[in-house]
Simulated scan of single mutants.
Amino acid sequence: MSAKPTGLFINVLSMLSATVKNLRAKKLDVRFGLPILVTATLASPLGAYSGRFIPHRVVLAVFVAFLLYSGTMMLFFRPKGRERKGNHIVEGSLIGGIAGFLGGLLGVGGGGIISPALILLGYEPKKVASTTALIVFFSSLSGFLTYWKLGALDWELLLWVSVPAILGGWLGTHLMHFKMSSGQVKKVIGAIMYVIALKTLLVALGF
């Protein structure tokens, strides 16, 4: 049970570090992701509570299928750019709600849903990555606090993972903005989707 809140806690710290760096570098458009942020944050606790009633392996199987599909699209599909700026409120709210619910349910934060969904809709990969970091921070924090209320925390483990999480978020953001092109960011996200899918599949199989 402590694995889920630990995963969310890692997301909170790493995405906080990434978001602070994005803000300092003026690479974050808060208004762009606001509809996603609101619905993801509200849906995350619902997902955390629902874990008591929904068959976990069924949810994991669906999530793995989505990740494999998204990862494949990130690596091999080239979406057309958006003709209009901004983020449609209905579109963003739907993505945020689904991502927040599954993120809270699985303890993954929801970034694996938000990033590929927005990129496939034609949004610029670096802008998506920066926005996703902000959204995942709030949705993960919401889910983590729910697990805290349920009493499912291992404080010693959380202490050990805190420093690597912060450093990882900062380093990843630095590399994305200053060392990588948008195409490379898209491919890295695709590869990460495969890694998360493999990890989730192993959990589903009981490894």
Rank of each mutant, 00 (worst) to 15 (best):
K4L: 14
G7L: 10
I10F: 00
L13E: 01
S14H: 01
M15A: 14
S17A: 15
A18N: 03
A18H: 10
T19I: 06
K21P: 00
R31F: 01
L34G: 02
P35V: 07
L37I: 06
A40G: 09
L42F: 12
G47K: 04
Y49V: 13
Y49Q: 13
S50E: 06
F53H: 09
V58H: 10
L67Q: 12
L67N: 13
M73T: 02
M73D: 00
M74L: 14
R78I: 06
G81K: 11
E83H: 12
G86M: 09
H88P: 09
I89V: 15
E91H: 13
G92N: 07
L94R: 01
A99G: 11
G103Q: 08
G103R: 02
L105D: 06
G109P: 12
G110I: 08
G110K: 10
I119C: 06
L120I: 04
G122Q: 03
Y123T: 03
E124V: 12
A133T: 07
F137M: 07
S139W: 02
L141M: 15
S142Q: 09
T146D: 11
L150W: 09
A152D: 14
W155Y: 13
L159E: 00
L159P: 00
L167C: 05
L167P: 02
G168W: 04
G169V: 05
G169F: 03
G172L: 05
H174N: 08
M176R: 01
K179H: 15
G183Q: 12
Q184N: 04
Q184C: 05
V188H: 01
V188S: 02
G190F: 01
M193F: 08
I196M: 14
L198R: 00
L205T: 10
G206D: 05
F207D: 00
